[in-house]
Simulated scan of single mutants.
Amino acid sequence: MIPLLDLKAHYAALRPEIEPAVLSVLASGNYVLGEQVQQFERDFAAYCGTRHAIAVNSGTSALHLALLAAGVGPGDEVITSPLTFVATASAIVYAGAQPVFVDVDPETLTLDPKRLEEAVTRRTKAIIPVHLHGQMADMGPILDRASHSHLHVIEDACQAHGAEYGGQRAGSMGVSGCFSFYPGKNLGACGEGGLVVTNDDRQMEIMRMLRDWGQEQRYHHALKGFNYRMDAVQGAILRVKLAHLEEWIAARRARAADYDRLLSGIPHLRLPVEAPGRRHVYHVYAVRTPERDDLRRHLEREGIQTGLHYPIPVHLQKAFRDLGYAEGDFPVAEAACREVLSLPIYPELAADQVENVAEAIMRDVYA
């Protein structure tokens, strides 16, 4: 079997580094935040090219704190993509604001800047572009439109660790950038984790307080905060893993290039596009086909796992019916949800395994 993701192989390769790091935390007796998390924050901020990083317990918490630090609250609207995991919209709701969706670009499936104008109202406070599948949204025109209306841009970079736009790293272009370290991410913890990067000193201070019960110092609560702290064990593990992220990105890009070469020209199969001036880090290698469900069943019979990122757009999810959207409102995103199929891709995936996947796809298409 070829899995969609192989976390056991991932751990086995790093075991000699991870286990001593974890044991050092256990021996220290300092299990929440602390030096390991602080050092990881410094390392990750340097990697992204930002001044600050605030480590938290999940990517959802990162989005929530970034919105609150930007002053988003009840009565505000936040524009984002309907083609994302529900956490993006949920964080907006947690802040008391209303998600407003715009459709995605048909090539990259990221937020379409040309559609922003129709969505901006006097209540709009922020834009959250989602860097989908490992590729950044078209940040230039998004930032230009935001600047025109004095809107905050908060990057949802939860799938885009190390992705680039014009040489700038994901998370470094907006007022803040939010990351998830869920185990399956390109940089994944052994459990839950998240982080916000920013260059804004005041927003950094607010987020540091909010993640730890709003404390300025112990038992002095300046804000109504949350328990969003990162565990020290996860900080230590992520420090180890961050040192390998660039080699893992290179491996993912190599396997994606193999897929591109082997699958090019197959009828009714659209391959992912790396837009000019961007570095795609291939968190997901998502092909598109009208026969998606048939192809998925065929690959399962062939012993190849696949994924759906995502089968239902957020505006059509039962939980978000109250927003008042209907089928047909965002046709590009809706079509993608019917057609997108994620193929196996991870740093440990071998070139011959990619060949096996491609051969299985061709057996189905040309049967």
Score class of each variant (00 low, 15 high):
Gly324Val: 12
Lys185Met: 15
Tyr228Arg: 10
Gly34Lys: 11
Leu4Tyr: 14
Val175Ile: 15
Leu262Lys: 01
Val93Phe: 06
Leu67Arg: 06
Pro106Asn: 12
Arg255Met: 12
Tyr219Trp: 14
His315Asp: 12
Arg301Ile: 08
Ala254Met: 14
Tyr310Glu: 11
Gly265Asp: 11
Ser147Cys: 08
Ala45Ser: 04
Cys190Ser: 13
Arg321Phe: 13
Glu339Pro: 08
Pro313Gly: 01
Tyr325Thr: 07
Phe85Asn: 06
Gly194Glu: 00
Cys48Glu: 05
Met136Pro: 07
Asp43Lys: 13
Arg296Gly: 12
Tyr219Asp: 15
His309Pro: 02
Ala97Ser: 11
Pro82Arg: 05
Leu26His: 01
Ala256Asn: 01
Val354Gln: 09
Tyr325Val: 05
Val197His: 05
Val332Ser: 12
Pro344Met: 03
Pro99Thr: 01
Ser61Cys: 08
Arg169Cys: 14
Ile304Asp: 01
Glu17Asn: 07
Ile127Leu: 07
Gly71Thr: 02
Leu83Glu: 02
Phe44Lys: 04
Ala232Gly: 02
Ser90Leu: 10
Arg270Ser: 14
Arg288Lys: 15
Val86Lys: 10
His133Lys: 08
Ala326Phe: 11
Ala243Val: 08
Ser81Gly: 07
Arg145Lys: 13
Arg122Cys: 06
Val240Tyr: 11
Glu118His: 07
Ala45Trp: 04
Val281His: 08
Glu17Cys: 09
Glu302Ala: 15
Arg301Met: 13
Glu205Phe: 12
Gly324Trp: 08
Gly307Asn: 15
Arg229Cys: 09
Arg338Trp: 06
Ala119Asp: 10
Leu14Ile: 03
Leu341Gln: 07
Asp43Pro: 01
Lys318Ala: 14
Ala275Pro: 02
Leu14Glu: 13
Leu68Ile: 11
Ala254Pro: 05
Gly214His: 07
Val273Glu: 08
Thr121Ile: 09
Asn186Asp: 08
Gln317Ile: 08
Glu355Gln: 14
Val22Asp: 02
Val354Pro: 07
Glu327His: 09
Ala46Tyr: 03
Ala367Tyr: 04
Ala319Ser: 15
Asp6Val: 11
Arg279Ser: 09
Arg211Trp: 03
Glu339Gln: 14
Gly167Gln: 10
Val86Met: 13
Arg278His: 15
Glu334Gln: 01
